[in-house]
Design a protein around this nucleic acid. Sequence first.
DNA 1: ACAAAAGTGTTCTCGATACACCCATGC
DNA 2: GCATGGGTGTATCGAGAACACTTTTGT
Lengths: 231, 231
Amino acid sequence: MSTLHPEYTDDIFHLSIPVLAVDIVLFTIYQDQLCVVLVPGRHEWAEGRMTLPGGIIGRGETLEEASDRILKRDTNISGVYQEQLYTFSAHGRDNRGDVVSCSYYTLVGTQAFLSQIDLTKVSLVPYSRISRETVAFDHADIIAYAYQRLNWKMEYTNVAKSILPASFTLRELQGAYETVLGRPFDKRNFRKKILSIGMLAETSELDRENSKRPAKMYRFADSELKIVGIL
Amino acid sequence: MSTLHPEYTDDIFHLSIPVLAVDIVLFTIYQDQLCVVLVPGRHEWAEGRMTLPGGIIGRGETLEEASDRILKRDTNISGVYQEQLYTFSAHGRDNRGDVVSCSYYTLVGTQAFLSQIDLTKVSLVPYSRISRETVAFDHADIIAYAYQRLNWKMEYTNVAKSILPASFTLRELQGAYETVLGRPFDKRNFRKKILSIGMLAETSELDRENSKRPAKMYRFADSELKIVGIL
DNA sequence: ACAAAAGTGTTCTCGATACACCCATGC
DNA sequence: GCATGGGTGTATCGAGAACACTTTTGT
């Protein structure tokens, strides 16, 4: 079956069933801040505010396929692991019509991110500046919910892998945790904990970037996302 | 706007978008076993196996409204708090056509349950007997996922309130935990923990049912569902 | 008096937190 | 030799797990 990709047109809102869409919360770290990728609201209904990348699911598509397709279309990013967040359906959540939104979220490393993204199409907005005034529809709520889940995932899984290069120092890792979770950690306790879990493996590299004592570099031992129980 | 309630008819599968449905996992305790409410598969596609109560979302309905409506229609139960579980969309998950299913789950007390339910329409199947052979579509997967979430909720919230009468003994409460979680607890640790949280309040009643030493009866202090962190 | 369930405390282990100094390097 | 970030260990506290006997009642 060939897949259809419906758009937000008038006639799609006259069917006997609601329209199903995806909205994607893409987190990344930029300039030491946790940011969310937003696109300019492409419809008059967005009233000049920005929106999450999103669109309508076509026939014969799974939610994951639609989410990949739409993320690629709206931001040019592909091949990232996305996780389902929640399906939103409140009355009036989308003033275009009767749209149920299944949301996905993900965390992408700055390098991977900047090399793929089309910066003419998207904006990086620090999480701290997102509010109902700045983003359209119920997207601020979706982002807030995604942030909660991301917090949980940072504490109990090795998601941090997504935002770090192949090898990194423990200080860099701690910095990533601090930026995403928005609170400081004790250096000794952080290292003890993270090493005791067995999530990391030493490499033979040393960090020669800084002209100070070189730091050992580590990599993640598991290539897949795993639940480990961290902080 | 008057709400439509579409059914699984041929023409609904010829739209340009997928059909959105809800499926409901209703847990209850019956004969000291954790059970799931199933209905006979109402469509030839179910191939004689049972299914979760479920149906298609209409225009102008939220998922919660649809879920309440459909649970009432399929089982005659109303007014229970349902929580969203996950939205399933895998290729071929429903052999009738392109159906995305948003699942909900809930836990209902035997009393409330038996007084409302229409037992000619539904079956109570022990969780331990559910498998891909006994239930249609991907409903066994949905149930397994709901069970995981229910486990989590028992450990970290006061959901147990749903399956206990207004007042109960600590032994009854422990029994409910043991039945749902499928493992035994130490009486002293259980009581210490559950009382220390402040989730319960003593009542002046004593349990005179058994002709042994009467037990104090307790009630839940909070009437709403709360996250507390239990076991 | 006895059977049956209710009720109660202590010990141990482990993970989380708080906290301050020495080490290796480049300049 | 000194400035800078890298690297390390110990003491305390609280939560969870293991574990056995006394109390109250009905018969």
